[in-house]
Design a protein around this nucleic acid. Sequence first.
DNA 1: CCAAAAACAGGTCAATCGTCCTGTTTATAA
DNA 2: TTATAAACAGGACGATTGACCTGTTTTTGG
Lengths: 205, 205
Amino acid sequence: MAETREPARKRTNDPEGMRQRILDVAELAFQERGYHATSLGDLMHAAGVTGGALHHHFATKKALGMAVIAERVAASVEETWLRRIEEAPSAREGVAQVFAAVAKELERQGFVRGCPLNNLAHELSLADDDFRMVLAGIFEAWRAAIADRMRLDQEAGAEEGVDPDRFAALTVAAYSGAMSMAKTEQDAAMLKVCAEALAAGQGTR
Amino acid sequence: MAETREPARKRTNDPEGMRQRILDVAELAFQERGYHATSLGDLMHAAGVTGGALHHHFATKKALGMAVIAERVAASVEETWLRRIEEAPSAREGVAQVFAAVAKELERQGFVRGCPLNNLAHELSLADDDFRMVLAGIFEAWRAAIADRMRLDQEAGAEEGVDPDRFAALTVAAYSGAMSMAKTEQDAAMLKVCAEALAAGQGTR
DNA sequence: CCAAAAACAGGTCAATCGTCCTGTTTATAA
DNA sequence: TTATAAACAGGACGATTGACCTGTTTTTGG
């Protein structure tokens, strides 16, 4: 009858693609629901992978979390911040551009997921020291990139008297905190206000 | 024999005390381990209460979470920030004092638990809208207190040209972000650096 | 072509979770 | 006193969790 041909269904192995699909859904889920609130079952369903495949690529949930941090969160910071800061005409302008670009993007999508790094840092820093140290490294690289860019400006004769490390620390802190409020209030307003305050030298003399 | 007297053990009902003991351990556990990572069993064990008592005072885990936020997190912000800002000689000095006091306390205890408000805001804002709105209200009150204090200074003739709301937003953002890094790095250094940057007008012109 | 390894399927399993229920004891009010 | 409600004890319950295991299929190296 109709059952005739069932000519051995093909399965195509694509280990790297499968790995990336898992990381895709894990990255999103960890951001929106958090690490602990996301079950491996959720991820299996969302990614359309079986338990065997998931366990093959990531032996434990922690291993998956570490991979998301090392490969996705770090990359996100790099793309959003490091690359743009390097390319900007100056450190200060680069910072302003990132704040503006992120605020614009948040308004476009009408939803604030928060800063990937801060989201996971808050949940995992105290839970596990391995998580904490990797996350701390990303924070440090973030600040270093901004400070280095500021030093470049200074070598070109600008920004006299500014401490690059201090400038970088305040920038990262203001962004992190502003994004924290934006997430809680589901409104990008604080991001814009803080960018203005930083630029105007508000909160200074 | 020895079994003679077992004269009906007394139990003293202390509903308010029991409630506070539960809130005590819940507040601490939610800060250190997070809301989702803390089980009601953990709390029952830590507080030495039974399931019946816990359920009597807090019907659901969410109800307990809401109580911790409304009664403990809000109070923590009030005590750490609002009260000190009101009492300070000026908004700017008050901010500096809080940063310094918190940094000193963190160094004394050698452990950074993070900002209670930000900790829960990050984990719960996207998970539940009831949580989110209460948390957003605390952020708003925090900024309002700082902005109001700045307006007082301005009525006294100081701080011309400063936008109080902008100042408040940057202050809260810088503190939140600095504490986020301090927690991740388990080091109060960022808190002090950011306080200096704010005071020096670093990151400004 | 063939063996060995890698990639994946699908399910088991003990442990743990939050909720809720049925009793018992203590406090309150009439 | 008495009855009525509040406060608490202690456990049951189904659902869910992360880890892991045994097969099968696909790929790779010789």
